[in-house]
Simulated scan of single mutants.
Amino acid sequence: MNHNTPLSPRPLRHLSEVHRGVLSTAQLRAHGVSAAYLTEQCRAGGPWQQILPGVFLLHPGPPTSEERLHAVLMYADRETRAAGVPAQPGAQERAGYPQVMITGLAALNLHGFAGAPPLPQLERIDVLVPRLRRLRSTGCARVVRTPALPDPCQVTGLPVAPVPRALADAVAQLSDAATVRRLLMEAVRGGHCEAASVVRELNQARLLARPHVVDAVDSLVAEGRAIAEDRLYRMVREHGLPDPVWNVDLRLPGGPHLGGVDAYWPEQAVAVELDARAARQGLRQDEDAMWSEYARKREHLERLGITVVHVTPRKLRDSLEQQATVVRTALMASGDREPAAYVVVLPR
């Protein structure tokens, strides 16, 4: 035997179980499968079939949804490695497919979205790859390129794009306004992410110029605020804070309007304001002006002796107890401050 003598194929039954019946040319070669043997196995009516370029299904008949997902990842990752694309930071920690991940509707399905189609109904599965490689879409694989891969979520052992990125890639392929709105609303109502992160991804994908997307985002932002307000009510109730007056405008007696706040404790002169700037990012061009408005209002209130606590929807979702502690500390510290100016409190 010399180095050119083909190896006898090793038993492959165990590979069908370990790799879910999907292997690449390189993996088959590593197990002693020659090109001639592979061609013979993939003949018409044979036991194997090529599902994507360089990716083979080790059984006849249609692939399962799991096999299609692995085939798409294997195809994209194999081509990316073959092109010599350097692994991005953190790639070594990603099991299986370090430089690619499932995105779009397939990813939303894996994240548990009821509004995403079942995997068998998807003709194509979106796969996110580095932009350095112009990998072509083919078969059931649709390639989506990005200058920087996000950190993936591991779902059933597969690298899957985070919900905001998966939503943006799904929306890019959708023209039905009702479907877009349903998916965006489910993201927030289902607790998958905050409206701000979705709007940011849609803006980066340049999708906010599409009227049906803008309409859906307007509803998304309103829904996100309603959910954040509900969490704010729950924070006060569950963590034993004194009841404030809710959603009020503050004015100086006979003077100018000072601005609205979401909660206000008149005796302690403490206000809580939900920071909605991040959720609106991308929907308006005057973000600097909006920030200046927030800063100006806060500065004016604090000059009058009113403590303003800013909270974000994400903080209310992820650290409700910590936010309650911040508010409680502000209320307790009121006795150590100079009395605040008298302000008129009106319903908003």
Rank of each mutant, 00 (worst) to 15 (best):
P6M: 02
P11N: 14
H14T: 15
S16R: 15
S16A: 15
E17S: 14
V18N: 04
L38Q: 05
L57I: 12
L57E: 14
L58G: 12
T64M: 12
S65V: 04
E67P: 02
R68S: 12
E79F: 07
P86F: 15
P89D: 11
A91F: 09
M101N: 06
A106V: 09
L108S: 00
N109Q: 12
P117Q: 01
P120I: 14
D126M: 11
R136S: 13
G139I: 12
C140E: 14
D151C: 05
G157E: 03
V171Q: 04
V171T: 06
V171H: 10
L174I: 11
L174H: 06
V180F: 04
L183G: 02
L184M: 10
A205P: 00
P211H: 11
D215Q: 14
S219A: 14
E223T: 15
R225A: 03
R225K: 03
D230G: 12
D230M: 13
P244H: 05
W246M: 07
D249Q: 13
D249I: 01
L252T: 07
H257T: 01
W265T: 01
A269S: 15
V270A: 03
R277L: 15
A279Q: 02
Q281P: 02
L283R: 13
G305T: 02
H310W: 15
L320I: 11
V327N: 03
